[in-house]
Design a protein around this nucleic acid. Sequence first.
DNA 1: CCTTGACTTGAACCTCGCTTCAAGTCGAAG
DNA 2: CTTCGACTTGAAGCGAGGTTCAAGTCAAGG
Lengths: 130, 130
Amino acid sequence: MALLDIAEVAERSGLAPSALRYYERRGLIASEGRNGLRRTFGSEVLVRLSLVACARASGFTLAEIARFVTATPDDTELRVHLAAKAEQLDAEIDRLTRMRASLRHAAVCTRSPLVECPEFKQAISDAPAA
Amino acid sequence: MALLDIAEVAERSGLAPSALRYYERRGLIASEGRNGLRRTFGSEVLVRLSLVACARASGFTLAEIARFVTATPDDTELRVHLAAKAEQLDAEIDRLTRMRASLRHAAVCTRSPLVECPEFKQAISDAPAA
DNA sequence: CCTTGACTTGAACCTCGCTTCAAGTCGAAG
DNA sequence: CTTCGACTTGAAGCGAGGTTCAAGTCAAGG
């Protein structure tokens, strides 16, 4: 099993070396050891980084992700947090779906200014919490 | 038509006065005039702030929002941008939907650590761009 | 008129997620 | 052995989205 150095991990993950060091500092990833001063990583770090990317894209902060990657099944507090986060994602999916509809309308609308269009406003404001 | 002062707008919008001043500076909102030095706003600023909140929650930057709130139908470049943004929202909705499924699974999973669960990984990695 | 509360301003500050910089280290290759 | 490229470190910096602070202003009320 070949260890990867930071440049390789960076190349294959699409992240900057500086970001990898930052992530290590924040506890999201860990190197396996050192070759001199240089970090060496197992190939599973790539899977970890893929998860990090996905979570970030879903609105998790790095602190949340760091918390999550070390989680074990008996971590009840985290489970509650995850369930709550899933609820948040429900709301966000709703919101994005509506905003997408508004944007699609705005892309063809003839009203001036666009944001005063009743149809646009309607799509935006179909919110339970107005 | 009663003009609102910044404290009232802040109260009713849930934003800090400092945020309102910041938004004004960035061109997202405008006061109607001044009472002495104090800003006075028309009640339609509340609708505007609602739109701003919605757009922010959908991933727009303040610069994008400022651009958008002044848009007119002949603004072709912006229309292209809006259509592209709607596509982005498509992808993001997909992503969030998958992440939500992963979180729901993680909330009940018995695997340790949670992120090594194959089912979890599967839900995350059902990505066209892995 | 005076007082006062809440505004104003501009600049410095904060968090987050990074990046850049300067000075130093060191393994690998020749 | 020397050289050198790419790493290391810690600190300072960046942009985004704000917040806080200190000093000043002023309308409204008494």
